[in-house]
Design a binder for these strands. Structure first.
Length: 191
DNA sequence: TTAATGATGGGCT
DNA sequence: GCCCATCATTAAA
């Protein structure tokens, strides 16, 4: 197992988005270890009308302009936190939205974090769902992905097919093919 | 100070 | 599949 470092994130957003598929997000909390596999991502690039950074720097999107390998969390629709990883070199905005993951380890804790959810498939098959499942909140804003308790590791899995398509839930830049997911995976948020 | 808006989820039918 | 709760951020005034 190898923890992805700053060099991994300091590249083209679309490339990072694709290569994050199949990797494991690890969150250590209260002595427990939560591990989930990334199965769906979206890239948000510089000069991309759907990217929060496209209209310049604001207090909210500030972290996107900073060094890569950090967490950008965003609150949406009054209820949901969305998890993004900052990409590209410093002063170049870019981020990868994590849209869906598959539980690998600590599913009891994940069920606990998502009270009232009956089917395991509904635990992490959406961007707002997975943040709740992993206990990710605004406190994660700007957190480094190379720390001890929250990081992404390369588990060596490469035996899957990447499906590329257009992004979801945006009004501008709809035609840009920056959404990627593992073909055939049950946990993708939408076909 | 205020109002519009949105990278959505969940429950009910 | 349809409907709606819910609030941080933003731009305008």
């Amino acid at each position: 197992m190898k923890i992805l470092d700053k060099n991994f994130y300091s590249r083209d957003t679309s490339k990072v988005a694709q290569e994050l598929l199949g990797k494991n997000i690890v969150h250590k909390i209260n002595g427990h270890e939560l591990v989930v596999k990334i199965v769906e991502t979206e890239g948000y690039l510089q000069n991309d009308p759907a990217c929060h950074a496209s209209r310049g720097l604001t207090p909210r999107n500030k972290v996107m302009f900073g060094p890569p390998g950090r967490v950008y969390v965003y609150f949406s629709y009054g209820n949901h936190w969305l998890l993004n990883f900052v990409t590209e070199k410093e002063n170049v905005p870019g981020a990868v939205l994590i849209r869906a993951v598959e539980p690998v380890k600590g599913i009891e804790i994940i069920r606990n974090n998502r009270p009232g959810i009956k089917k395991d498939i509904d635990l992490t098959n959406g961007p707002g769902k997975l943040t709740q499942a992993l206990a990710i909140t605004k406190d994660f804003y700007g957190l480094s992905l190379t720390g001890n308790n929250f990081y992404v590791e390369n588990n060596g899995i490469k035996t899957f097919e990447i499906f590329t398509t257009t992004r979801i839930g945006i009004s501008e830049g709809c035609e840009l093919p920056y959404r990627y997911y593992i073909k055939g995976n049950k946990f993708i948020s939408r076909k």
